[in-house]
């Protein structure tokens, strides 16, 4: 008798708990909707199906790279080399195809291997040498931006096999191929984080590295893994970009990492590591995409766009911190 009452109370509390949790969790989607409504009132073109597809195509690169970035940030690290990985993948892939006569597939594979290698290098500096992630990946950002410039001689490379366009510009039925690639990346990310044991380790390491080690987690191996994955996803974003623009610019990915970090943090991933959900990162990516697109439609200047994005980032993180503070007192 008594125990049934207890469990009933538990159940009721559990319900209330879950409802509050859900509302809090979905706040970011509410923000997304608010922005969408705002822009569609301000510009009739915004909600047109052609514009929606443009948005989706635009965000796909952010989306793809954000999966890897999220892994790294979850473990308490950061990857500042993302932009340079995108650039070097652009340049190397183009170079292989145009200057060295590689086939499309092998050029893509070699470039992706290179991006994994850069990730492993970051992993080596962070996990084995124990350099602070922000410095280690900053160093590789500079190095590989330089390499890309040296390799390309500072001029764009173009003239690819026409079939290469499919990756960035093609459609399957009515859905753009990059959107499909992004969705697959999110699905993989979600699978890793929610279903696999090493996904749990990402959270554990970001939460308490020492305790993770004592729980039998091979912290360095996992760090190599997250940086390698971050490199790989950035490389994939680079390939999509190359196919979209159909020419490799020696500065293609410059500054990209900050947009990607913004997407991830906007999605509520704790910068200190240990906490974050991929569904909210998707919302973060969409918000940035919609904001950029909407402001372009409304003819907002690039500098004004920077101001707005910066404020959005500060608001998002500030809101998150306030919530945490409230939960504790």
């Amino acid at each position: 008798m008594k125990s049934s009452i207890v469990s009933e109370v538990k159940e009721k509390n559990g319900m209330k708990d879950r409802v509050i949790y859900h509302i809090k969790d979905k706040a970011i989607w509410a923000v997304f909707l608010a922005i969408v409504v705002g822009f569609s009132l301000a510009s009739p073109r915004f909600l047109s199906s052609s514009n929606l597809f443009i948005i989706m195509r635009q965000v796909s690169m952010y989306g793809i790279a954000s999966v890897g970035m999220m892994f790294v940030i979850l473990t308490g690290g950061i990857d500042l080399s993302t932009g340079s990985v995108i650039t070097i993948v652009n340049v190397v892939c183009a170079h292989l195809m145009v200057k060295m006569g590689f086939g499309m597939v092998s050029a893509v594979l070699v470039s992706l291997l290179l991006s994994v290698f850069i990730g492993l290098l970051n992993g080596f500096m962070v996990a084995t040498i124990r350099m602070p992630a922000i410095i280690a990946t900053f160093a590789s950002q500079i190095v590989f931006a330089g390499c890309a410039y040296l390799l390309s001689g500072g001029v764009p490379i173009y003239g690819f096999d026409p079939r290469f366009k499919v990756i960035g510009q093609g459609y399957v039925k009515a859905v753009p191929v990059p959107v499909i690639i992004m969705s697959v990346c999110f699905a993989i990310g979600s699978f890793i984080l929610n279903k696999t044991y090493f996904g749990r380790y990402f959270y554990a390491i970001g939460g308490n590295e020492e305790a993770s080690k004592l729980s039998g987690i091979k912290v360095s191996s996992i760090k190599y893994l997250v940086y390698a994955l971050s490199g790989l996803f950035a490389g994939l974003a680079g390939i999509v970009m190359l196919s979209r623009t159909n020419s490799a610019q020696p500065t293609a990915g410059n500054g990209y990492e900050f947009d990607v970090i913004t997407c991830v943090v906007l999605g509520g991933v704790s910068v200190a590591g240990g906490y974050g959900k991929i569904s909210n990162v998707i919302a973060g990516v969409l918000i940035i995409g919609v904001l950029t697109n909407g402001m372009v439609l409304l003819n907002v200047s690039t500098y004004m766009q920077m101001v707005v994005k910066g404020i959005v980032l500060a608001l998002a993180v500030g809101f998150d911190c306030l919530q945490k503070k409230r939960a504790l007192t």
Binding site: R200, Y203, G207, N208, A211, L214, S215, G216, S270
Partner: peptide, 21 residues
């Protein structure tokens, strides 16, 4: 505090951490 808890993580995940594999 230093060697034990994974504070942000659930009770369930904390308990299973060494045996996830």
């Amino acid at each position: 505090k230093r060697h034990g808890i994974l504070a942000e993580i659930s009770v369930k995940n904390n308990i299973n951490m060494p045996i996830y594999k």
